[in-house]
Computed example of a mutant assay.
Amino acid sequence: MRRRDNWRFIAIILVALAAALAVYAVAEAGAGGAIGYALMVVLPASLSAFVAWAGSIGRNWSRGAFLSVPLWLALVATAIGAIFLREGIVCLIMVLPFWIAFGYLGIWPVYLYRRSRWMVDPATFRAHALLLLPFLALALDHQMTPPRETRTVVREIIVDAPASAVWPRLLAIPAIAPGEGRWTISQNLLRLPRPVEAHLTGAGPGAVRDAYWQDGIRFQEIVTDWRPGEALEWRFAFPDPSIHERTDRHIEPHGRHLWIDRGGYRLIALAAGQTKIRLWTRYHVATPFNAYAAWWGERILGDIQDNVLAIVAGRTQDAMEGNAR
């Protein structure tokens, strides 16, 4: 009897995973459904409820057994996403809290019902019907237009140098050594690519900065404002899909959910010959979870900006020390 129950539980897990992969496939084939309520909210809640209900039939599950279901499902889904679906680390980490939180929301009514009535007819709760809910949510996702918001990420650094010494280091950054810059969570811990070099073609508005990063990533910054010693601004251009192909295919820089728009430097003169370098990036986000996406944008883009500013500041200081000698 125990062996039969074990095989039944394995079958339940396989059915749940098959349903999840089917929802994922349908979402990927649709227009932007991968970032929506179906995969982020309804799927983890319905899968957790299904496994908790069907798995506990004929078993006196403890509270800990119920509480472990969302965690195990989230970890298994993350492993499958990383190994078989080739999802990027950023996407997996962003989705993981949703799967755990809404997984617990899904098992809560099941746990309350089981606690009050352990001996029930399984037919009173059609567990398999739960697996249809994510497909219904996908249909709603495809009909919804997510709200669009504009966000700006700003970072600053102070250098012991006048703006005239900083300005040339903003225009081009050749041959960035592996040890340059600073340690960041995004680029050191999450292993997002780091900048390798940046070249400038032309001068003034219309000039183009070609930026090259690790893993063959490249993009362009087309200058829109050129004020030597004061400010440099640009709009972003992405001539190839290298960013989202090599980092996360759901985070396309000029896509439906994300549009990285403009950026720039501003040089602010301070007392005692110091200069504050301000680096900003403006982007538009359109998802059902804009506040959550912006929280990650602040940290990931902020880490990238901190690293770039550290490189510029370090090279400026080296130039000042070289001139002093």
Results as ranks from 00 to 15, higher is better:
299 R>C: 07
287 T>A: 07
304 I>Y: 03
284 H>W: 07
303 D>W: 07
280 W>A: 15
305 Q>T: 12
283 Y>F: 13
263 G>T: 02
282 R>S: 15
284 H>F: 14
274 Q>V: 13
270 L>F: 01
292 Y>C: 02
282 R>P: 02
297 G>Q: 07
273 G>L: 03
267 L>Q: 10
284 H>C: 15
297 G>A: 00
297 G>W: 01
293 A>L: 02
271 A>D: 12
288 P>A: 09
271 A>P: 07
290 N>M: 02
270 L>N: 09
273 G>S: 04
293 A>N: 05
302 G>V: 00
294 A>H: 14
293 A>W: 05
286 A>E: 02
278 R>Y: 09
284 H>Y: 12
293 A>T: 13
279 L>S: 14
291 A>S: 14
270 L>H: 03
272 A>D: 09
298 E>Y: 05
287 T>K: 00
266 R>H: 06
296 W>V: 01
283 Y>Q: 14
286 A>L: 06
295 W>I: 14
286 A>M: 08
302 G>M: 00
292 Y>L: 06
285 V>M: 08
289 F>Y: 09
272 A>W: 01
271 A>L: 09
276 K>I: 11
287 T>S: 03
265 Y>E: 11
268 I>W: 01
276 K>S: 09
304 I>D: 08
279 L>V: 06
290 N>I: 09
296 W>Y: 11
283 Y>W: 07
264 G>Q: 04
265 Y>K: 00
296 W>E: 08
296 W>A: 02
268 I>E: 07
295 W>N: 11
274 Q>N: 10
286 A>F: 10
265 Y>G: 08
298 E>V: 09
269 A>Q: 07
301 L>G: 10
287 T>G: 00
291 A>D: 14
300 I>Q: 05
281 T>W: 12
274 Q>A: 15
266 R>E: 10
281 T>I: 12
269 A>E: 12
284 H>N: 15
274 Q>M: 04
